[in-house]
Nucleic acid binder design. Structure first.
Lengths: 198, 198
DNA sequence: ACTCTTGTTGATCGAATGATCACCGAGCCC
DNA sequence: GGGCTCGGTGATCATTCGATCAACAAGAGT
């Protein structure tokens, strides 16, 4: 009666990746305070095995962070934001369509929020990145497009950004119903933001 | 050598209130997973005493929720939102000035977020309250003020709301620098939202 | 088919956690 | 000022936690 629970041997790299994958989903759901035993069960391995691949729970947490944060911001977004052959409205709409597609996932939204509450430094680093490499250029482009008629402040851009990000928060943090396709909501927000420029 | 640590007797009601006060600050900071021993130390009492006033940690958590949620939304806000003798712009600005003054506190913002991640049902109830009793009336008033020229959808109002609430998230969850006085930011957001109506 | 490597496990340790209980003593009453 | 009430404490229990270790066995090499 050897059950279907066969103990399979995986290559270290593959197993490590599998654990990180499971840990990402697990921590996203219950937070970093969740016990390693539950995590191990969901990963389909023993709790002891976790410590063959990660020296401590904190190290596993770091690995999850690395996996989640790395490459979340695509470099070409900035190039496209700065492409003045395209109308400013289209650039902003396109950017936020791509950006929300990248971050509006259960795992990213929740891990980012858990880490934020925990006071993790990576959060602030990420958001300073957003500010300097995305919002500030957007501000420049809008100012240029306005041709002297208007120059938004950084707080205005944070306001635009927050209004859109809040969609993901409602959806994945608060579990509230949110439109499946956020594109029209984003377009309306961009239109209101640009006003006469749109 | 009787140290300054004098064991004072308090009336049950006062002690209970004191514990809830300390628990609110403590849970806001570290989340509901924080050990009761640390909480007791910060409350200036023994860990055992907590269980004289609350049968379990979950019950203490509920008491904190009740204290934090209760009376957070002032009924007269709705009346003021509906007072059509006042211009719509002034009504919205005034409301969000009051609303942010009420919820932009370290404790409210963080406990609300911890509870949201924990999937607490009170969060959704609160936000449905916001939707039905604040955003929906705002939508009606704006529609009336527009006199047929514009009728915003609920998602538009969530967008306005989220952009403003995100100020508090940046401040108290992510510990990012945010303007001390949020009034001008709110006014700018309301102006952009109302557009020509403003 | 046999062996050897090493990915994987079950058992277990010490510390920390939520919760309990017998006992102490501050402060009011007479 | 002696006694009584009950708010408060120290000690402790049963669990659960992160982490460790000797031992097992899957699977490649020969």
């Amino acid at each position: 009666m050897e059950g279907s629970i066969t103990r399979r041997r995986l290559e270290p790299a593959a197993r490590r990746e599998e654990i990180i994958r499971a840990a990402t989903a697990y921590f996203a759901e219950v937070g970093f305070g969740g016990p390693t035993r539950d995590l191990a069960r969901r990963a389909g391995v023993t709790q002891a095995l976790l410590y063959k691949y990660f020296a401590s729970k904190a190290e596993l947490r770091e690995a999850v962070f690395e996996r989640v944060y790395l490459g979340r911001i695509a470099p070409h977004w900035l190039d496209e934001l700065r492409d003045r052959t395209v109308p400013i409205r289209a650039r902003l709409c396109r950017f936020y369509a791509q950006y929300t597609r990248a971050i509006f996932t259960y795992e990213w939204m929740r891990i980012f929020m858990w880490a934020g509450l925990d006071g993790d430094a990576l959060n602030r680093r990420y958001l300073e990145h957003v500010s300097a490499l995305l919002l500030a250029p957007m501000r420049e482009e809008i100012t240029a497009a306005a041709e002297g008629r208007w120059a938004p402040g950084m707080e205005d851009l944070w306001n635009l950004h927050g209004g859109i990000v809040y969609l993901g928060i409602r959806r994945h943090i608060y579990h509230l119903p949110v439109p499946e396709d956020v594109t029209p909501v984003i377009e309306a927000a961009v239109d209101r933001f640009l006003g006469p420029l749109s």
